[in-house]
Design a protein around this nucleic acid. Sequence first.
DNA 1: TATGGATAGTTGAAAATGTCAACGATTTAT
DNA 2: ATAAATCGTTGACATTTTCAACTATCCATA
Lengths: 160, 160
Amino acid sequence: MTIETQGGQRTEQAHKLVAASISQDLGFLLAKLHAAGSVLNNRALAEFDLKERSYSVLILANSGLEPTQREMADFLSLDPSQIVALVDELEKRGLVARAPGKLDRRAKTVTATAKGGKLLQRAGDAARRAEAEVLEGLPAEESAQLKALLRKALWGAGLP
Amino acid sequence: MTIETQGGQRTEQAHKLVAASISQDLGFLLAKLHAAGSVLNNRALAEFDLKERSYSVLILANSGLEPTQREMADFLSLDPSQIVALVDELEKRGLVARAPGKLDRRAKTVTATAKGGKLLQRAGDAARRAEAEVLEGLPAEESAQLKALLRKALWGAGLP
DNA sequence: TATGGATAGTTGAAAATGTCAACGATTTAT
DNA sequence: ATAAATCGTTGACATTTTCAACTATCCATA
């Protein structure tokens, strides 16, 4: 993810437009790095028939936190109906299972199956390689710093 | 953009799922902060009948760099056909003008009109306020650091 | 404890976006 | 001169987003 190379192929020039003031705009920077990262992520995950979305759901399902679909929707900033579709697909493939909420029978918790956990392990490796590629312009310390700042912006100082 | 408040309305709980490992994933963090920011940005820009996209195009048109549509598409990570639609709309509103490229008559450069420049000034104020809101969890120095790291990840060390 | 109002998941339709192939006009390379 | 590539544009198609409605369940309270 820097200037001249990306996955081996030449992809984007150091652009004259970098000089424009929009290069100081947080939203633009987030969108652009996210767009670049999505390409690499989805490319890496395609091997496992996953996309960023389904990968996220699978991670949450495998977290041990027994999230409900609603919690996933809130956390992933997705509409509940999109979660339905994503979980449907993962469930059909035997990677996750729905269970009625223990406390609330309206809710359904989603947990990864053993098969889902195994797939996730391999997919996670690929995703981490893709992330490393996105961050290849930053030394390790700065990568960690970037992620820490993003977390702090989202959730404040206290949390993870 | 921290935990309990956003634009005055309560919006998202400090979520139990923050504990999941996906909170360490760059793509997820970028997507989530970008999603949160987009809501605020678009809300702020609606007053001027702009969205993030058209706002970006207007900024580039007003940069003095006389970008071509192709350059804009590359820089904004959009399909050229989307630029056509965005420029069409801004041109119809008298905010930008197309001109044939001086060197290359296939290309068209897009520049902001005086009217476009004025609107952009006001819209820019609103956008900056929205950005400040997204970054309210970070002290000024860390906000600057975050943006610097994003730029470095995108374009390497040398640039802006 | 029964009733009303909220909430979880689901479905389906409508709107907005993204992706891609084709075309004419031009440029660039041979 | 000709061939191959590039720019903007159009239109078709797929994917994603957004939203309203519906059932089942929960919660508050009269």
